[in-house]
Write a protein that binds this DNA or RNA. Structure first.
Lengths: 215, 215
DNA sequence: TAGATTGTTAATCGATTAACAATC
DNA sequence: TAGATTGTTAATCGATTAACAATC
């Protein structure tokens, strides 16, 4: 297993590359050069070349990289060659969306069930996935050996529920609440901050004409 | 109107501050110091102080900032003191979620209607908002003077639909597809890249034990 | 006055960009 | 051989952190 640690900005750009590479692959291409990738992107060529170089694949001058090798390397690095099963906690509108968001299957994430404390939601199935009462979480986490959770509950309950999840064996939490979770060693969280994105969007909008702010 | 341009990382942190400040305000606090903010956060104190300093408010040594002034300044800077009406295009699972995502009302965004080309979706209302056929978009954008669009359609159609939106008068697109939209001068887009977040999450997960990667 | 805090300038760190060498 | 591309080292740029002065 590769243990080389890439820079955070590089990691964030990898899915963008991967998306284009998969497209090119569908179109039957065999090799891909930085130049070809750049056409679809707004990154600097050197940046792309450096990012791809971190994958430690040999590129052929004049040709580029072997497309499939590059795809495999990125998928492997991200761990997207095998999917992890995950529980989603909080079947509000955002939770329901994520349960039905097809593209995740390309990103190594498989949400297998949802949980909620609202009895009007439990017992039904959403996007083909069963919704259970949150009380059943600990037992089901243990039984099914689930290590990944997606947290889409109101922020007021976030820390408490996270504590329960961790106690039951969850090792990684993708957190969509605005709360910065406090977690013990050995548990990772990642905050998906929609508000940050919206803030940036709002400011760009305001500065529309005289702006020099970049994405 | 304030035209001072903040740094991108600062802008992304503002909503986090705002969230905590609003909480403190609800609890009846009148002043807030960096020290108090830090308790809820994982940022460096100096960083927070510098971010807040960009708001150009006088802080009182030993006391901190006047809470309400700080909240107002941040909201004003982000343009969140007044909400913009927006159309959402693409009522798939993600689109439906965003239409029903309550917190947006605190973030200056008001999605007033949805659009889709699937006749099984049009004519109904979702989360209290009407869904129209995408063919009606141009006319309705003009009639209602809408300048903001949220784009949650499959990426294959993203550029084409964006072109139509812009032609009809849309000035700002919050783009949830994986495509980097090409837009003319005077139109802003912001890409919300869920895949980037998931990539970072995946890598953190993989490196769980021996990691030195930071959020 | 002492202490907690704001506010600012300088130093460090990290990421991007520029310049150029190597290769098929 | 010429040219397109990979690959790498050095320079620049931007953001964070450290150090310290100012103030109530």
């Amino acid at each position: 297993m590769r243990t080389k640690i890439l820079k955070k900005p590089t990691i964030k750009r990898l899915p963008t590359y991967l998306h284009i590479l998969r497209q090119l692959s569908n179109e039957g291409e065999e090799y891909v050069s930085t130049t070809k990738l750049i056409n679809e992107l707004e990154f600097e060529p050197v940046l792309v070349r450096k990012d791809l170089a971190t994958m430690d694949l040999p590129g052929k001058p004049r040709l580029g990289y072997k497309l499939q090798d590059l795809i495999n390397a990125i998928e492997e690095y991200l761990g997207w060659n095998e999917t992890s099963d995950a529980f989603l906690v909080g079947c509000g509108s955002l939770g329901v969306a994520l349960m039905g968001y097809d593209p995740f299957k390309d990103y190594g994430l498989n949400i297998v069930a949802g949980f909620d404390n609202d009895s009007s939601k439990t017992g039904k199935s959403i996007h083909g996935k069963q919704v259970y009462n949150i009380a059943e979480l600990p037992q089901m986490i243990k039984e099914q050996n689930i290590e990944v959770a997606v947290l889409t509950i109101p922020w007021q309950y976030a820390q408490d529920v996270a504590n329960d999840l961790i106690k039951a064996g969850i090792k990684a939490i993708w957190n969509f609440t605005t709360v910065k979770l406090k977690v013990p060693e050995g548990v990772v969280t990642h905050n998906e901050n929609l508000a940050s994105g919206l803030a940036l969007f709002s400011v760009k909008k305001k500065l529309r004409d005289n702006s020099d702010i970049e994405d």
